[in-house]
Every structure is written in C-alpha cells, then in structure tokens.
Design a protein around this nucleic acid. Structure first.
Length: 192
DNA sequence: TTCGTGATAGAG
DNA sequence: TCTATCACGAAG
C-alpha cells in the first residue's frame, strides 16, 4: 500500500470531499503523528455554522490564503481548534476533530497530563493540546512540510460514516461530520 | 448536568 | 463600553 504526502491539489476541491478523504489519513505534526478518525466540513458560503458567516476576519483569511493553509482559532477561552482551508471547487474548511495516536505517544501523554491513550486526541481541543498546536501555526502551509503535513495511502478506501456535526447551533442538520466506522478514538460515537 | 474561559463582533 | 455567542472539556 503506497503512501503519499497530501499535496495542495487535494485541498483545491470541496470541503465535503476533503473531509471524507482525510479519514484514515495520517497527520504528522513534528515528533508526533496520528490517524485521523473524525473530521467535519464547513462551507464558506451558505453555511451558518461556518465562521465566514459571522466573522469578517475569517472571510479575509479565505481571501488571503492558499488551499492547505492552517486556520487555527481559540475557543471557549481554553482550546485551540485546527482546521485546513479548502479553496477550489468550493471554499471552506475541514475541522480535524479526533486522532488515533500512533507516534510520539509519550510526549502526547505528558502534554495532556493523562495516561489514557484512548482519550489523548478524542476531540478537537484535546488533539491540539496533545500536539501543542497554537496560534503560532495559524496560516501555516500544511502542504509544504517538512514537519507538518498529511499522508494518505494511494488506494485508500476507508469505511466512513457521515452524520451531523457536533457542538453547533446553526445549520445543524447537514450530515457533514465524518468518522472512521467503529473507531474507539472519536469524540462522540456516530449516531444511528 | 454545570461552568470556566477569552476572542470576536455588533450594538449602543 | 457592553453583551452575546461560541466548531470545548472536565468535573460531578
């Protein structure tokens, strides 16, 4: 199974396709890495849950940056969120929501202050803490390496479940959350 | 179930 | 200046 670093062309499509195809891909972040088991798609247009809907600064971000740029913001006074800019057939973001830790696990445990592998990265705020992702990574190009990038197997065909996004109050009905079927590392199990 | 926490944006 | 609103997480 040949593996391949995810290039910019991947993020020049649309948020739904990118979010779905990032499931089972690997996120490499410095000394650490994990398999992506949960994502969500947000659309820059016609999606009230997307920051572009109410935040001029986010709309400016989309204009200013290329596909594959990291969009990172601080939430609830405590947590950083990692998103990737999708800019092409349709603009928007993929929120990285959970990982199965595979490398640098001891470091992640130390940063998280817990020992339970299952919950090291089982949520968007948890994984940024485990990987030490902060605003210093905002607008970083995630398609240019050498320390922060995605890896995907060429003939990937992961078993992906789509259900409703989590933790939002607007545009709640769209099935735009994607999880790896049966994974114990997701934040909240898939419904139905 | 509840509550802390701080950035952002819009209203007054 | 003030207020509302959060793409959350941990404790209880």
């Amino acid at each position: 199974m040949k593996e391949k670093i995810v290039g910019r062309a991947f993020f020049r499509r649309d948020p739904l396709t990118c979010a779905r195809e990032l499931i089972a891909a690997e996120l490499v972040w410095g000394k650490c890495a994990g398999i992506i088991v949960e994502t969500e798609a947000y659309f820059a247009e016609n999606d009230e849950a997307c920051h572009t809907f109410s935040r001029p600064s986010t709309r400016a971000f989309v204009e200013r940056n290329r596909a594959g740029a990291a969009y990172i913001y601080f939430s609830y006074g405590a947590h950083w969120m990692l998103n990737v800019l999708v800019k092409g057939e349709a603009n928007g973001f993929v929120l990285i929501r959970a990982l199965k830790p595979i490398r640098g696990i001891e470091l992640m445990k130390k940063r998280r202050g817990i020992d339970d592998k299952k919950h090291l990265c089982s949520g968007p705020g948890k994984l940024t803490q485990a990987l030490e992702i902060t605003d210093r990574h905002h607008e970083m190009d995630l398609c240019a390496g050498p320390r922060h990038y995605f890896v995907r197997s060429r003939n990937a065909s992961a078993d992906v479940v789509a259900d409703a996004r989590i933790g939002i109050t607007r545009s709640v009905h769209h099935p735009w959350r994607f999880t790896l079927r049966g994974s114990e590392f997701v934040s909240v199990p898939a419904r139905r």
